[in-house]
């Protein structure tokens, strides 16, 4: 082992596999996740303990052994905080063991949320790119519209969500589109701002070269500005797709718990079905993480083919 290898921070081969794992990122992440689960279990026992003691009291049971007490707190039907394995079992039951078309299947509800998420994301991205192109080419729009696009995000737009849904329902537009509109609103912003930055990222010397080729504005856009905006586009699409999912979930709240992950959350909160809330929440988290990952994979492929990968 040379000192050079040591100084580059690479894990020396002489170390045990364990300490090699711990010196990277994977090891610490695993430890932190394990700690989170431990806290979760501990919290479940502490939070549900009172309910369990009340239950014992009603049943007239005294001095229950600790192991049984803990097992019981982790197996309640409507716990204050369900234990991770209860949530896992619920997710398994509502995804793998139910048919996909069943109203009790989480896959069915996820599908509904996902469809409005993706529709909203696509419209939002297209809108964001379109606005960015207009803003870059028009001084008036740049000066008048851009400040409003930025301040539009200080407005808690999710507050409008129920109104958009109810109003569109009133004039007969129902289903995916109203929810997708909320996703659109949330996702257009990061794309528009990122693309304005991206479309302006070519340097003067490059723009000058396009001018010496006597390229038109359209040609400059297609051959210089859009390609150099690609990294910005993907970075903002990652933010946009996550925001889009939030929009779709919140959009499902006011429709009166019909279908979708948001509706599952609302129904769960109405009937005190905590396990149902947690499983919907975990599934939403998994969907968000996968969507961001998918955009990331696209990013890597596209940037690699464009020769821009870092």
């Amino acid at each position: 082992m040379t000192t050079e290898a040591m100084s580059h921070g690479g894990a020396p081969a002489s170390l045990s596999p364990f300490s090699r794992l711990m010196s990277g990122t994977a090891g610490p992440v695993i430890v932190v996740v394990a700690v989170i689960f431990a806290i979760w279990y501990l919290g479940a026992v502490l939070l549900n303990g009172q309910l369990q003691r009340d239950a014992y009291e009603r049943a007239g049971r005294e001095d229950v052994p600790l192991t049984e007490f803990i097992a019981d707190t982790l197996a309640q039907e409507r716990p204050l905080l369900p234990a991770p394995h209860q949530v896992a079992v619920e997710i398994w039951k509502t995804t793998a063991e139910k048919s996909v078309t069943s109203k009790r299947s989480l896959v069915y509800h996820s599908g509904i949320t996902l469809s409005s998420t993706l529709l909203g994301f696509l419209i939002g991205t297209a809108l964001g790119i379109g606005l960015a192109v207009l803003i870059v080419h028009s001084r008036v729009l740049d000066k008048s519209l851009m400040p409003w696009i930025i301040s539009s995000q200080t407005i808690p737009i999710l507050a409008i969500a129920p109104m958009i849904i109810v109003v569109l329902n009133a004039i007969g537009i129902t289903g995916t589109l109203p929810k997708a509109m909320i996703s659109t609103y949330l996702s257009f912003f990061p794309v528009a701002v990122g693309m304005v930055k991206g479309l302006r990222s070519p340097e003067f010397i490059q723009l000058d070269l396009m001018k010496t080729y006597s390229a038109s504005q359209g040609q400059t856009l297609m051959k210089l500005r859009l390609p150099s905006a690609a990294p910005f586009l993907f970075a903002s699409m990652k933010v946009a797709v996550a925001a889009s999912l939030v929009g779709a979930i919140v959009g499902e709240l006011p429709t009166g718990a019909v279908a979708g992950l948001g509706a599952r959350l609302l129904a769960g909160s109405y009937y005190g079905q905590t396990i149902q809330i947690w499983s919907a929440l975990i599934v939403a988290a998994v969907i968000a993480a996968s969507l961001v990952t998918i955009v990331g994979v696209f990013e890597r492929i596209v940037l690699k083919r464009m020769g821009m990968a870092q």
């Binding site: 979930i249 959350l265 919907a280 929440l281 939403a284 988290a285 968000a288």
Partner: peptide, 12 residues
């Protein structure tokens, strides 16, 4: 990146 607003019913 997660839809954290979803914890709202639990907190309520």
């Amino acid at each position: 990146a997660l839809p954290i607003v979803g914890v709202a019913p639990i907190m309520v």
